[in-house]
Computed example of a mutant assay.
Amino acid sequence: MVTPEQVKQYIAAGLTCEVLEVSGDGHHFEAIIVAKAFDGLPRIRQHQMVYQVLGERMREEIHALSMKTFSPHEWKNRP
């Protein structure tokens, strides 16, 4: 079973993050991801980048991932 720490490592290996928090129960995970690479991108494209980093793990190891993604500017200015 995959742990939240492993999911965090998978994301960090493919995406430089300023903030990366992952929680979950081994099947369903929640993540908060702040990355400079998200600057100027719509939310859907940000999520696609994370899914791309995770690749086949999304089919084989991770059953569900709910994420909140932000650029550093969005993170700093969030309500």
Rank of each mutant, 00 (worst) to 15 (best):
L20C: 11
R59D: 15
E21F: 10
E56F: 12
I33H: 07
G26Q: 13
V53E: 07
V7T: 06
L15C: 04
D39P: 09
R59E: 15
E21L: 14
H63G: 07
Q52W: 01
G24F: 02
P4K: 06
M67Q: 15
V22E: 03
R59P: 02
R43T: 12
Q46A: 05
E21G: 08
E5Y: 06
H63F: 09
P79N: 15
K36M: 01
E30P: 02
T3P: 03
E74I: 06
F38W: 04
K68W: 05
T3Q: 08
F70E: 00
L15Q: 04
C17L: 01
L41Y: 01
I11Y: 12
L20D: 13
M49A: 02
V19I: 14
I11G: 09
S23D: 08
G14T: 00
P79H: 14
T16C: 00
M49D: 01
L15W: 07
V53P: 07
C17E: 01
P72H: 08
V50I: 15
L54S: 12
D25Q: 13
V7K: 06
A13H: 05
E56C: 07
G55E: 12
E56W: 09
A64N: 13
L65S: 06
V19R: 14
E60S: 15
H28W: 10
M67C: 02
Y51D: 04
T16K: 08
P79T: 10
R57L: 11
L41I: 00
K76I: 10
V19D: 05
